[in-house]
Amino acid sequence: MPSVLRKLSMTTAEPEESDLRPDVVAGALDPVPAYCDVVDGHVRDVIEQTGEAAHAIIQQLVKVDSLAEVMAGDVAQLAGTLSRTESELSQVSAGNDQLVGRLISYFLHRDHQIRALVDQMRELDQHVKQIEQVSRATNILALNAMIEAVRAGEAGEGFSVVADEVRKLAHRSAEAAHGIGTNIGDLTAKLDAVLSDDSQFDREQELPPSSEETAMTRRLGGIASAQREMSEMVSGILKDTVNAAEQVQRSSSALTSETTGAVGHVQFQDISRQMLEHVAGAVGDIRQQTEDVVAYARGDLTEEELMARVISVEDLRAKHVMSRQRTTHASQTGGASHDDAEPLIELF
């Protein structure tokens, strides 16, 4: 542009040395303002569209943020509920353990008493055997007495009757003792069976043998063990779920942190808007200068007026507000680099 102006200036000063036609120059530059208007319109479209996009991005990030917070809240509530459930389950399990423990103690005590009873009954059996022995001896004695009574003849007839009665008593006594012994035996066998009838249980549950254990205590122990295993399994599931929920909370927190960062980055739109407005302003300057040149070529503007309004790259530099604009300006014009040492944050 300055070279064209120089030529125009020369044309005015020395028309005879140039065949430059001002009307051609004016005609060539005539479409430039409209061209600039279109470029300006495009730049403003970009500003408007990036602005709308930035607003939409922020709104969506805020929604994502809100959803993440709701999700984190829900998960925290779930984790709290599961944690309480796990705690309550542990308490119930501990209570069941105590209950089964007390039941085992009760049955061990009861079984111990039954064993003592069986032992006492076995001792009774010994007494019955002694009674049977006495009865047998009495029977033999009565038989001997009868023999002696027969041998005594008539004088021994009364004694023979007594001896016979003694023999009968001995016989009945032996029968009674035998009956008692049989009953004691049956009773002892049944009590033994109560204490030791765990064959069916052992086939289903393999538990380590214990001299203190009985069928009932083994069953109770089995129930307690199964209940404990189930409780541990459920507790494990609950803990895993709580851990997963806590992980979701951490992820949600990280997500909201990222969305906040992204919202911060959307500030680029304001910066690019200002840069584009700066470009639009420069296009406007070019437009104005083109119109001035056209006016000069058509004789509507004097050389002095034109030259007074000529734009320069230094004018453009004076309009920069950002460090980056000044740096780019310097790199494009080959000028001195802008001193970019100012801190980005400064408290006075």
Binding site: G264, D270, M322, S323, E342, E346, L347, F348
Partner: peptide, 29 residues
């Protein structure tokens, strides 16, 4: 602001501003 010139900062300080932050500024900052 996007403005980074020291003269503007001095004007702001004289006007009673407490500090100067250049855009963009991150949430943590």
């Amino acid at each position: 602001t996007t403005e980074s010139e020291q003269t503007k900062r001095a004007e702001a300080k004289a006007a009673g501003a407490t500090g100067w932050l250049v855009k963009p500024v991150g949430p943590d900052q």
